Amino acid sequence: MTASAYRFLPDDSVAPMSMPRQQTVLLDPAGREQATVLEVMEGVCRVYCPCEETEGMTLAFLQSGDRLRTDRLCSDGACVEALTALKFRRDAVSADELGMDAVNEWTLQLLRVRHLGQAEQRLHALLVLLVNRLGMRRSDCFQLPFRLTHERFGELIGATRVTTTRLLSKWRQSDLVEMSSIDLTTRLSPALVESSPLTF
């Protein structure tokens, strides 16, 4: 994707901004004289690297209350993709935000997932990681408030889209996963969540 395909987010502090689902903004790396923080106020988003070499590599997922230091990201900046309706703001870094941030923590967890030997284990662990961090418990399932494409799942677990589709189809047929096209959510059965190959 070329830089012209993105909406740019200004570097100075701005009033809260709203974005509809599936819109993306580019955090421009050009004005990094002062460290800033992106704070998610409502919704869920994916932060990824816009570099051609990394092909949109996912760095983190953020939800309401998460703060991300924008000066520690890729030299080409970073993109924020709204997975749900999103409201966020940009502010100066406070003195207490000098340690580990959301990208570091997510990167660690995604590396743990990628380290598992089989694609099925990696996809299973990824779904549980996402639902534990970004989802909610319902009476009969765990639910993510968004859906990811099979291609995105493949990118996150180091597998092809075909492999991801095959695994998700198998779990759908076993009533372990449901991906609603009506409300664009993903539901996981308690059995799938409780049998995760990793604990988060």
Rank of each mutant, 00 (worst) to 15 (best):
V131A: 00
S64R: 13
D91I: 14
R72K: 10
T84Y: 05
R122E: 06
G65E: 08
F88A: 00
A102H: 03
G65I: 05
A82C: 03
D91G: 14
E120F: 07
E97H: 08
N104A: 15
F88K: 00
T84P: 01
Q118N: 07
A95G: 11
A92K: 09
T84S: 04
R133A: 10
S64W: 09
R133K: 13
G99C: 03
A95Q: 15
M100P: 08
S94W: 04
V128A: 04
Q63N: 12
H124L: 04
A78K: 01
D91L: 15
Q63D: 07
R90T: 08
R69G: 11
C74R: 04
D101L: 01
G65K: 03
D66R: 09
D101E: 14
M100C: 11
H115Y: 12
R69M: 11
E97A: 12
N132M: 04
R67T: 04
D96S: 09
R112W: 09
W106M: 08
L123C: 03
L86A: 04
L86M: 07
R72Y: 10
R89E: 08
R69S: 10
L129V: 04
Q63W: 05
T70H: 05
E120Y: 09
R122M: 06
L83I: 08
L108Y: 15
T70F: 06
T84G: 03
H124S: 07
A95T: 12
R69P: 13
K87G: 00
A78G: 06
T107D: 14
R90S: 02
A125L: 05
E105P: 02
H115K: 14
V128S: 09
V113L: 06
A92S: 07
L62C: 15
A92P: 02
Q121L: 04
L130D: 07
A125C: 09
L68F: 06
R114G: 06
F88G: 00
D96L: 07
E81S: 11
R89H: 15
L126M: 10
L86F: 06
S94L: 13
C74M: 01
R69F: 06
G77H: 03
G117H: 13
D71G: 07
T84R: 00
L126D: 08
N104E: 15
S64V: 03
A85D: 15
T84W: 04
T84V: 02
R90P: 02
L62R: 00
L73R: 03
A78F: 07
L129K: 03
